[in-house]
């Protein structure tokens, strides 16, 4: 590596929340105003340091690019049970039962139909069913925390699960992730691929979390927070949250339509 490529050292271990907060403020001040996505070079999330490119991305404007098409999924790829994360074991998982529902749209507001939505999350105590998660919170034998579904004709998706717990991580001293559900989404083109996280309204940990704060624009950050929707709550059964998702990026059909216009 040349000196040019050797940036400032990664932020050291053991920073306090206050020190991370000032790094967050610094990154926010340096960010492009109104940016929709987080900058890949985001010092407050310490493990981004050696994992982001230094060079600019190369724009591809070729209308024949294969990335403007994408993989297809269908009835063979999901079962009807996959959208219910509370029904994957013999017993009921512990926690607050919730449903999470929304629509997947493209940037023109058109529904993304028949595409794969995958979710994964910690259990109600804040522990993942993953060997490397050693947070001393209990595993739940009745909860794995992974689900899939296909979007319907309206772009709609729906999952039944339990509300995930907050959990500590070692980014800095006393670092806690707010409750969140990880989402993976496919659009009609590979260039619309999205992996993101959904948060819960009113979570007191949101201002302290460098992961959601990596989205430097406040309005964009708010798009990651679901809405409590009382009409989605089911009496004597579950609480309802709504979260719509808009996929970025072009797709082939778009190019054609723009060409027609």
């Amino acid at each position: 590596m040349t000196a040019r490529d050797l940036p400032a050292h990664p932020l050291p271990d053991g920073l306090s929340q206050q020190e991370i907060d000032s790094e967050v403020a610094r990154a926010q001040a340096a960010a492009e105003p109104g940016a929709h996505h987080p900058p890949r070079d985001y010092p407050p999330y310490r493990s981004s340091h050696f994992r982001h490119p230094h060079r600019s991305l190369i724009p591809v404007r070729d209308p024949e690019a294969v990335e403007l098409s994408g993989p297809a999924f269908g009835v063979t790829d999901v079962t009807a049970l996959d959208r219910d994360l509370t029904a994957q074991h013999a017993g009921e998982p512990l926690g607050e039962r919730i449903t999470v529902t929304g629509r997947v749209l493209d940037r023109a507001g058109r529904p993304v139909r028949g595409q794969l939505v995958e979710v994964w999350q910690a259990n109600a105590s804040g522990r993942y069913a993953h060997q490397l998660d050693q947070h001393p919170a209990p595993l739940d034998p009745n909860f794995t925390g992974f689900g899939r579904c296909l979007t319907d004709d309206d772009g709609g998706y729906s999952f039944t699960t339990v509300k995930p717990g907050a959990y500590p991580w070692r980014n800095h001293t006393n670092a806690w992730r707010p409750a969140h559900i990880h989402f993976s989404l496919f659009g009609t083109s590979f260039s619309q691929r999205l992996v993101t996280q959904m948060y819960f309204p009113g979570d007191p940990l949101l201002p302290y979390d460098p992961v959601i704060r990596s989205v430097t624009d406040q309005a964009a950050r708010e798009r990651l927070v679901s809405t409590y929707d009382h009409d989605l709550s089911v009496p004597e059964w579950s609480l309802g949250y709504r979260w719509d998702i808009v996929l970025d990026g072009p797709c082939a059909t778009w190019t054609e339509e723009e060409g027609d216009a």
Binding site: R107, A108, L194, V195, T196, I212, S214, A220, L224, L247
Partner: peptide, 10 residues
């Protein structure tokens, strides 16, 4: 017209 949902780390 629709603002996109931001990316987050996997």
């Amino acid at each position: 017209s629709h603002a996109p949902t931001p990316s987050q780390t996997v």
